[in-house]
Design a protein around this nucleic acid. Structure first.
Lengths: 71, 71
DNA sequence: CCTCTATGTAAAGTATATATGACATTTTAT
DNA sequence: ATAAAATGTCATATATACTTTACATAGAGG
């Protein structure tokens, strides 16, 4: 599950992987691997990334699958 | 950071920790520790819990008012 | 050409999420 | 009061997130 939303948001704000990594206090490799979908970040890291990009969890980590039409 | 929103949602749906754990394919202990704030679930697990509770990430894992520690 | 920046990737090590099994305590109901 | 269910918690083990270091490639500009 490649994270295209996260990558799109990062690009939209003209941040390199390295810059986002610094803002989120992780390494560049970690950001790269998350965008490539090669692993599965922790909630804390997701939240740190959200703060760095000024978005919420749903905006970049929630996939609206064929799942909800209720309420 | 105790996760009170998740616990409240679980209770609202009259699920025990054990039942939620089964729906999310983890152990009871894992659910208990997450609710107690003693560790930090992976994104995949957060999403599985959201599906089990029919909510989105923002509803039980996003905190809008106070900033918490990074790392 | 050469250099710098951005990204992909891989090996080895560390930290920690999660499982398993067990026992204790609290809660709920009989 | 007793039993059963729900939860807290501990100790040990395994899987994997994440780091560190390093090398490779592609693109932009000098």
């Amino acid at each position: 599950m490649k994270n295209t939303k996260m990558k799109a948001q990062r690009k939209k704000q003209h941040l390199s992987q390295t810059e986002l990594a610094q803002k989120a206090n992780v390494t560049r490799q970690t950001i790269g691997l998350i965008e490539a979908g090669e692993f599965n970040p922790s909630l804390k890291l997701c939240i740190a990334i959200c703060h760095a990009l000024n978005v919420t969890l749903d905006e970049i980590f929630w996939e609206d699958q064929d799942h909800e039409l209720e309420n």
